[in-house]
């Protein structure tokens, strides 16, 4: 059951990430092509709740997706299985979530 839910979570977050990465890359290209300065970018992102919601979703999807993939890599390449692996991956997920949200909030507020 747990592994089926993990698989499902990875597939759903993959679909979310596919959209997020495209939007993210398009935004970067737009910002660079348009020659926006850091101050202009911050002017658009600060207080923008739509922007906050989009990038929070991006971070959340990445924090769920990456550890599930890493779980398989650790199992197959290092033969690391069992509770210690799951605890490590939970901490890794929290690290991604913390680092990602720190960046998002840093540009939002």
């Amino acid at each position: 059951m747990t592994q089926t839910v993990l698989w499902l979570a990875q597939r759903i977050t993959a679909a979310i990430l596919a959209v997020c990465v495209v939007v993210h890359l398009a935004t970067i290209i737009y910002a660079v092509q348009g020659g926006l300065s850091a101050a202009q970018i911050l002017g658009r992102t600060r207080g923008n709740t739509a922007w906050l919601a989009f990038y929070s979703l991006f971070v959340l999807a990445a924090a769920i997706h990456a550890p599930i993939g890493l779980r398989t890599v650790l199992g197959e390449w290092l033969r690391w299985r069992g509770a210690s692996r799951e605890i490590f991956l939970l901490l890794f997920a929290l690290l991604l979530l913390w680092a990602g949200m720190r960046a998002v909030l840093g540009v939002f507020s």
């Binding site: 059951m1 089926t4 839910v5 698989w7 499902l8 597939r11």
Partner: peptide, 14 residues
């Protein structure tokens, strides 16, 4: 099988 297990998991049958 992946699809079938996912559906069963969502229904709480697995």
């Amino acid at each position: 099988l992946k699809r079938a297990t996912a559906k069963a998991a969502l229904k709480g049958e697995l």
